[in-house]
């Protein structure tokens, strides 16, 4: 008697659970997209009527990261975004499409084309729109223009001041926050002045920081800059905020030492203590 024919049957029986259906959560295509379940989301969008602009937008944004990531997918996404923006360039979907159209050459292509992205971001930045992605275009301009390699420091400074003027008219909280966090960082890294860096970080912080990690680092930077520029009240206030809200941060002892030095001695002493600690 040959037993060999039993083996496939046994394997089939034992592996039955592997063929069970994928229990993807039953959700709308957008909820599936928010969960990162792009294959299911893309299929769901593709089934919706072709004249449904929002579905075409969904199809396009899922194509951006659908695996395997291919040029064909990105080309198709770009075509969909272009068509959506062509029907109305300034409504919710139109602006969103233009923003992600810029993101394709900026971050999604294997060989990026930042100048192509810049053109679209500049167009979006000139819109007088409260849309978060229209205003975010200004943040993208700052990230691209200020960190462009091999440009003279004077030119960086000129761009910085021009962008600061543009950024002053932002009114969408996320855009205000992100723009000012970028500008504060740039001011610090390129040594445009600690007062300038501090003012931008304060503006960003007041717009409302969403993530705890960003918040605690920003509070530390604000307090440190304020201490170094002699704005003791701001430094004290942010050191205290940090201590109150982050009881398990490894920097607490250093912050406490700085706070003690600030509140117990003259203006000169804290600097001395901190320098000694360094």
């Amino acid at each position: 008697m040959s037993y060999s024919h039993l083996i496939p049957c046994l394997l089939l029986l034992l592996s039955a659970p592997l063929f069970a259906s994928d229990p993807a959560p039953a959700s709308s295509p957008w909820e599936l997209t928010a969960l990162g379940l792009l294959k299911e989301a893309h299929a769901a969008f593709a089934e919706l009527p072709s004249e449904d602009r929002e579905a075409r937008f969904g199809e396009a944004v899922t194509l951006l990261n659908l695996q395997p990531k291919t040029d064909a997918n990105l080309d198709r996404a770009a075509a969909l975004f272009t068509a959506i923006a062509a029907s109305n360039a300034t409504d919710h979907l139109g602006i969103s499409s233009r923003y992600f159209l810029a993101r394709i050459p900026q971050v999604h292509r294997v060989n990026p084309d930042v100048s192509a992205a810049l053109v679209i971001f500049r167009e979006l930045s000139t819109l007088d729109s409260p849309h978060p992605l229209a205003q975010r275009a200004v943040v993208q301009l700052a990230l691209i223009e200020l960190f462009e390699p091999d440009i003279p420091p004077d030119e960086v400074r000129t761009r910085f001041e021009r962008l600061a003027t543009r950024g002053a008219s932002l009114n969408e909280p996320s855009a205000i926050r992100d723009f000012n966090l970028v500008m504060g960082d740039v001011a610090l890294r390129f040594k445009f002045g600690e007062d300038i860096a501090l003012d931008h970080l304060l503006a960003g912080e007041r717009a409302g920081i969403a993530r705890a990690g960003t918040r605690r680092d920003t509070w530390i930077r604000i307090a440190e800059l304020a201490r170094r520029t002699g704005r003791t009240d701001i430094a004290t206030s942010y050191y205290n905020l940090f201590l109150k809200n982050f009881p398990r941060d490894a920097r607490r002892l250093m912050v406490k030492e700085r706070l003690t030095a600030l509140t117990s001695t003259s203006d000169a002493a804290p600097r001395k203590v901190v320098e000694a600690a360094r």
């Binding site: 928010a34 944004v61 990261n65 992600f100 978060p132």
Partner: peptide
């Protein structure tokens, strides 16, 4: 970092739509 930030684009688009 580039890959991570590109991945966030799709999630961001979903939130922009759901937020509306």
């Amino acid at each position: 970092i580039g890959l991570n930030t590109a991945r966030l684009d799709t999630l961001l688009a979903a939130q922009v739509i759901l937020n509306a």
